[in-house]
Design a binder for these strands. Sequence first.
DNA 1: ATTAGCACTCAGTCACCCTGAGTGCTAACA
DNA 2: TGTTAGCACTCAGGGTGACTGAGTGCTAAT
Lengths: 345, 345
Amino acid sequence: MLTDRQKIILQVLIDDYILTAEPVGSRAISKRPDMSISPATIRNEMSDLEELGYLEQPHTSAGRVPSQKGYRFYVDHLLNLASAPDDDPHGLRVEFLQRIDQMEQVVQQAATILSSLTNYTSIVLGPKVSTAKLRQIQLVPLQDRKAVAIIVMDNGHVENRMVTIPEGIAVESVQHYIELLNRKLVGVSMPELKMRLHREIATELKRYSEQFESAMTLFDQMVEGQESDLSKVYLGGTTKILNQPEFRNVEKLKPLLDLFEHTEDLVRLVDPFGLKPGIQIRIGQENEHETIHNCSLITASYSIDGKPVGTIGVLGPTRMDYGRTIAVIRGLANNLSSLLTHLNK
Amino acid sequence: MLTDRQKIILQVLIDDYILTAEPVGSRAISKRPDMSISPATIRNEMSDLEELGYLEQPHTSAGRVPSQKGYRFYVDHLLNLASAPDDDPHGLRVEFLQRIDQMEQVVQQAATILSSLTNYTSIVLGPKVSTAKLRQIQLVPLQDRKAVAIIVMDNGHVENRMVTIPEGIAVESVQHYIELLNRKLVGVSMPELKMRLHREIATELKRYSEQFESAMTLFDQMVEGQESDLSKVYLGGTTKILNQPEFRNVEKLKPLLDLFEHTEDLVRLVDPFGLKPGIQIRIGQENEHETIHNCSLITASYSIDGKPVGTIGVLGPTRMDYGRTIAVIRGLANNLSSLLTHLNK
DNA sequence: ATTAGCACTCAGTCACCCTGAGTGCTAACA
DNA sequence: TGTTAGCACTCAGGGTGACTGAGTGCTAAT
């Protein structure tokens, strides 16, 4: 275990490094106002801290830099979150209220706000509206055998999809089937929908219709790919990383920007955090994706009616301002939760 | 007017510069296989070309670099498009056919393909489906006075929007109004819709309903902001510019990446090209936006049933491979047009 | 246990030189 | 008269060496 003095030194060093992005030397630390230890002593302590794995030296005679383990300790034990209490930046709520007509817009805006408050790139997932219940299914015929299937959920979410009516079904009799679906499936949530379709509806249908096969292919077309809303990703401030000195050269930048273009990868990156309550932090190599081994990812889940439905997060260099960022994310997650809950009423 | 020899030199120089991104010297030009002029002569010619404004010198004793005027001349008179004839890369059509269920997906994919074929960033606008006719309007009530308005066009395009039913109207009587809209407005195109709503429907309504005011606010909610599909922008390969040596340092890169985040600006950038037929090229400062004064923008319109509905384009450094890029864009525009036309049937 | 002093290391910067690529000019040439 | 060869000149880029400043580790003194 670290001595109190070691903790103080570690904290001051990381604080400084977060600010300057430059290796921190013993003299710099001893110069701090309420620091009454000589550089020499600090050198000794730092040497110990390095041996313990909390610090690293880029090369002899540069200052020290926090290691991954150092950051982890800092985050777990040294971070003084009381410093930024319920720092609800009033701006948030005001901004939000401007156009609250669509959930998507709200979430998109949350991403923008988050990145502008933190000056890092923000990643927002969801909201999974799997709690939403089916309100109505409709099929609007177009030319030929084409039609648009429209699925309305009770939270106002609408999915639509072009389908082709199979040859086996008369276009006129289609509405008949849609009515059946509505009778049977209203009130069912999206994830359940597919299941119920194949279980209950299929058996029901088999009994009194020889068009069974065709009807089922039609239904499948309608719900296929509809679970995609699980993985909707909103990014904010993707160019913010350019401000970070660690990404000044293009070679290091490119893979990161490439990552931002591949939303599926981002989902895989953020989703494993799941919808656990509280703040989740992954530092450097704790992240799976190699591209961001020198980044940290801080996330929190937001919820509707107390049920977690999505994740907001921030991606920055490992040397990021954990204290401030955590405070902002926590605040915004709460804010977003209450707003969405309100919206959903 | 330029002499034949000057034209040849200008062409060779630009070809070379496009390839290497390095200033081109007289010796390099004279070394080209079928070039039988001595460096000294070429120097004289280049000096003349510089005086005429077609070339520039970064500094004494560097080679020459094409000026904006030089590129313009190159594009207008020297570009040999026969070199890449109907270079229909067969891959295109195959790729496209994978998932042609939604127009949006097709267009999005076009952007991706375009950028991967050209290695520049692609910008795709549209498709404006203003030719599409209204098929059906629906209103699905949710809790309280909330409802979802759904507008289905005959090409399968669906717009939806959350609305609040004004206090002045009984929720039960809403369907009555919707029926009216459907009776009167089916077959009308989106741009016309707003107009007709205020002219014909308004007068009709005024006659026999004291709920006139409330009904109109409801209708307005439904169509408000619906013309947004004019300006849908799809980007492809935004990180491709990182490959270009002119954007190797972050300072020059940032404004460009920032631009990519502001889709409205992109629309304003590309839209003025309008839907003119043929290839449109803007070189360097011919572009309005200062950020891309060292870029060129090549666009072409694509169409449905012969009517231009959108724009595809490529953004690269002024030193871009005009010949190849133009060929690719032209090919893809044709391809996309025929595909969308087919899809719309 | 802490501190002061000292020798040592190393990245970064600056001045400097050299080289190579390129030009412009002039004189010779066809 | 147009083309070429030769030559002096310019300039960016690369390499070298010296210097500086920040930092460390070790040892001896407190």
